[in-house]
Simulated scan of single mutants.
Amino acid sequence: MTKATIGYAMCGSFCTFSQAFEQMQKLVDSGYRVLPIMSGNAYSTDTRFGKAEEMVKTCEDITGEKVLHTSVQTEPIGPKKMCDLLLIAPCTGNTLAKLSLGVTDTSVTMAAKSHLRILRPVLLCVATNDALGASAQNIGRLMNTKNIYFVPMRQDNCIKKPNSLVADFSKIEECVELALQGKQHQPIFI
């Protein structure tokens, strides 16, 4: 029996994709229906971490669903109540900024806007090199936004990247369960 439907949106923090795919598989294995969503960059950019085509195929193989990757595809998420929760993992600094300012110009930000308009939870799994710099104000703003929740995060390399934070991807399922109940996992910062 399916527990709930999770929209699983991925942005371009490519170095965290292996962790994101691992957690996507765990959600599926735990009985969640997972609807994959990718930003245009995540969907089409080849990087040293893999070819875009392979990343898309991995999402589709894990979930058994086609990846939604355009704003036209993700706009109905809210009106059609396609998800019980929207998870953005990884959530880049760019996406944090857009969400905090109400900018809707990607498939992921459209999915979030559409989902939030029906008052359903959005869970952010941050991965950005400027979380304690330029993105700090956006994180703060989003922490005070109704129906926005965060996966706990920590500095990933405080010497070489002192402003960088990465969420603890291993806590995604626990945070999904809490956010579905309207609760924020504590502590937020590890």
Rank of each mutant, 00 (worst) to 15 (best):
T2M: 04
K3S: 00
K3L: 15
A4E: 10
A4I: 05
T5E: 15
Y8E: 03
M10C: 13
S13L: 01
S13F: 00
F14P: 11
S18W: 02
Q19G: 01
A20G: 12
E22L: 07
Q23R: 15
K26T: 05
G31T: 07
V34P: 06
L35C: 03
P36Q: 04
M38S: 05
M38A: 11
S39T: 00
S39E: 05
N41I: 11
A42I: 02
Y43P: 06
T45E: 03
T45G: 01
T45I: 05
D46L: 10
D46N: 12
R48W: 05
F49T: 03
F49P: 03
E53P: 06
V56H: 05
V56I: 14
V56W: 00
T58N: 10
C59R: 12
C59S: 13
E60K: 09
I62T: 07
I62G: 10
T63K: 04
G64A: 02
E65K: 15
E65D: 12
E65A: 15
L68S: 08
S71W: 03
V72E: 09
V72T: 04
V72Q: 14
V72I: 08
Q73P: 13
E75P: 05
P76C: 03
G78V: 08
P79T: 00
M82R: 13
D84A: 14
D84M: 08
L87S: 07
L87N: 11
I88K: 06
A89W: 00
C91T: 15
G93E: 04
G93K: 09
T95F: 00
A97I: 02
L99G: 05
S100H: 03
T104I: 09
V108W: 02
T109Y: 02
T109R: 02
T109N: 04
M110L: 10
H115V: 13
I118G: 01
L119Y: 07
R120W: 08
V126W: 06
T128Q: 09
A131I: 01
L132H: 02
G133T: 11
A134K: 08
A136S: 15
G140V: 01
R141S: 12
M143Y: 10
N144M: 14
N147G: 00
F150C: 09
F150T: 06
P152D: 06
Q155T: 11
N157G: 11
C158G: 08
K160C: 02
K161C: 10
K161F: 14
P162I: 09
P162F: 13
P162S: 03
N163S: 07
N163K: 10
A167D: 11
D168M: 09
S170T: 13
K171A: 14
K171F: 04
I172V: 12
I172Q: 11
E173C: 03
C175N: 04
E177D: 13
E177Q: 15
L178G: 01
A179I: 00
L180W: 08
L180G: 04
K183T: 02
H185E: 12
Q186H: 11
P187H: 07
